[in-house]
Design a protein around this nucleic acid. Sequence first.
DNA 1: CTTTATTGATTGAACGTTCAATAAAAAAAT
DNA 2: ATTTTTTTATTGAACGTTCAATCAATAAAG
Lengths: 195, 195
Amino acid sequence: MEPIRRQQLIQATMAAIDEVGLADATVARIARHAGVSAGIISHYFGGKDGLLEATMRRILSDLGDAVAARRRDRPDDSPRAQLQAIIEGNFDRSQVTGPVAKTWLAFWASSMHKPALQRLQQVNDRRLHSNLCAQFRRLMPRDEAHRAAQALAAVIDGLWLRGALTPEGLDAKAARRTALATLDQLLDAAPHPVH
Amino acid sequence: MEPIRRQQLIQATMAAIDEVGLADATVARIARHAGVSAGIISHYFGGKDGLLEATMRRILSDLGDAVAARRRDRPDDSPRAQLQAIIEGNFDRSQVTGPVAKTWLAFWASSMHKPALQRLQQVNDRRLHSNLCAQFRRLMPRDEAHRAAQALAAVIDGLWLRGALTPEGLDAKAARRTALATLDQLLDAAPHPVH
DNA sequence: CTTTATTGATTGAACGTTCAATAAAAAAAT
DNA sequence: ATTTTTTTATTGAACGTTCAATCAATAAAG
């Protein structure tokens, strides 16, 4: 029963946040979305905070899985191919859907003042940056790779942010194209591989 | 008295949001920051929502002023110079400071479900995009200019987002450098001016 | 004296958590 | 196989807390 309820409640949390925002996502509303009683939340997650943390953990975990899968399925091990896989993983279908994107941004804002969420966010942030950096590092000096990784990460997050905010939701195809174009420019700007 | 109190309360709102986040920025706390009673807020802003809207309006207005000032002070009217001015205006000192950046992100997340804030945010968004687009348009075809503007806007917002979240606050100098480098790449990629 | 500015206690609504009661399921005993 | 016992799962009303808004009372200014 436990894994079923946890999954139901995490999904219901995203649905509620998508519907009315984090501020108005009360335990009563979340429970109603899941078709259960409000008391269940404290029973399985120890309280509302526990449920919110579990929900953010799930989103970041799914995002990491999407990136890892794209990289694994790509036989080409070249830096450009791997960077493309990372970008495409970040704009994976399941991640840019309305509820997930909105919940993600809500947590991001919330993590500014909640240490538990801030830790999760920083771990995810560092993982993305080191993934990008490692690939750029194969093509350019350290400082340059660092800057390229920062620029690409900013583009990815910026597109997510704007996508979460537009009423129509993120245009995944256009976002992917923009991010890939930025990648190409970053690579063309430093065409001197480090042997 | 009125303009003084309004200014005090708007500043106090940013201070409170910087301190404990939007969720815990109660009217009592904001009033305490301003050194006045809680009842004053309803008197001058009609309620808490009015104060929050006025605060967001102030942030966006200050941002617009910073950009306009940078463009005005720049004698060079070339596209590149104007785009640089827009970028530098977006990373103006008064805007990237802790309280302002955190409040800005908090409102951005909140605007997903509050129509009043969403309108403000969209107006600001469209202004940035059309400013960028108009300059790129002088150097490349329409579609290409549109895409370049989207990419640069994503970088700017992404840098803001990441800056608001890092505990140390945004490194304005590094952010400006990253955005300007992206601009240079966008311009170099399309070196065929439309006469 | 009149108007404006300000206070702060009060009010009613909304929220998260708790917990005793109940239902369902599983295990044990007959 | 049936009944009894034990454990687990779930409910929803009650409780205490917190908050925004109100408004009569007071102070200051014109």
